[in-house]
Design a protein around this nucleic acid. Structure first.
Lengths: 156, 156
DNA sequence: GACGCGGTACTCGGATAACCGATGTCCGAGTGTCGCCGG
DNA sequence: CCGGCGACACTCGGACATCGGTTATCCGAGTACCGCGTC
């Protein structure tokens, strides 16, 4: 099991945009250069965030991406689901009903699937409890300022 | 993010072996046929469980796999880790230290990575809390008997 | 009749292909800005 | 001097290659059982 690398990129981009809250949008090129990741593929990830309603994009000169709502209202789970999709990691194929179990009556859901689902819910709850604002608060101000300077934005 | 299909197979195989606890081992062919999955690939998964110390294999006629310890001592997490590997789903690449953050001093661990790690720990805790014996207890006896009959084992 | 031995059938185990999704790249559509031209 | 217009540069957005990993398969090594020959 491996989470897409785009999740890390998306989270860091959202963190950067949270620092610049309310200012002019940031284009893909700037974000990609600041993390040294391929711009075209990062753009693909940011598109997914737009479709999920987390970011707002604007075209043309001076365009780019900005947060669609305040950082307090964006949870880590929102970002992860936007990139990875809503489907659970464990997908019960109901192999218990094949072969030996064929024709049997299974009124209850598979106990194994239920346990896995329960674990995933715990994982989601933990991610949903953390908002982007919490991450901002936990990050030293020096990192904020360095990124602002690097993007050519004047300090507050 | 998608969990390997082998996890479901491995869990169901362990569940079957838990029903037959203390009896003769079951070969890959029987297990594969009972779930209608490719035998050769299932064997690969069972090998991983052997390496993890969950199953014990025996070669030759009448050989096969059996549990290495009592079902109470086997957690779902043990099985999942045996198949998926011990590495976490989210792997922090420290992209914050590249580009804009290059040369900076980051004494603390990345807040994003910490949050993701925390969520994964919650997931693992939930899986570790469920043992194979719990799954056995939650499964109707009819399924036990149907599988025993299908494998050609006399009822208890 | 009992023991030892060789052959056979069956099983695990690891090395080897095929397929699929994530990763990476490219080009077109759309938009805001700037400069130029006419009034 | 001021307003309108055209061209341009920049940005997003989706369509098209490439690569790694999971999925699937095969064949060799090892082992227990069975039958035969010998003592």
């Amino acid at each position: 099991m491996r989470m897409s690398e785009g999740v890390e990129w998306a989270l860091h981009c959202c963190l950067t945009l949270a620092w610049l809250e309310g200012e002019a949008p940031v284009p893909t090129n700037k974000l990609a250069a600041s993390f040294e990741v391929p711009a075209a593929y990062l753009n693909k990830c940011l598109q997914a965030l737009v479709r999920a309603g987390i970011l707002i994009s604007s075209a043309g000169i001076g365009g780019g991406f900005r947060l669609a709502r305040r950082p307090e209202k964006i949870s880590l789970l929102d970002v992860v689901v936007a990139i990875e999709g809503p489907e659970p990691a464990f997908r019960c194929m109901e192999i218990r009903q094949r072969g030996a179990g064929a024709g049997g009556t299974f009124r209850r859901t598979c106990s194994i699937a239920a346990a896995m689902r329960r674990a995933e819910r715990a994982w989601q709850s933990e991610l949903a409890a953390q908002s982007l604002a919490d991450i901002v608060a936990a990050t030293p101000a020096a990192a904020h300022n360095r990124m602002r300077c690097w993007l050519g934005r004047p300090g507050k």
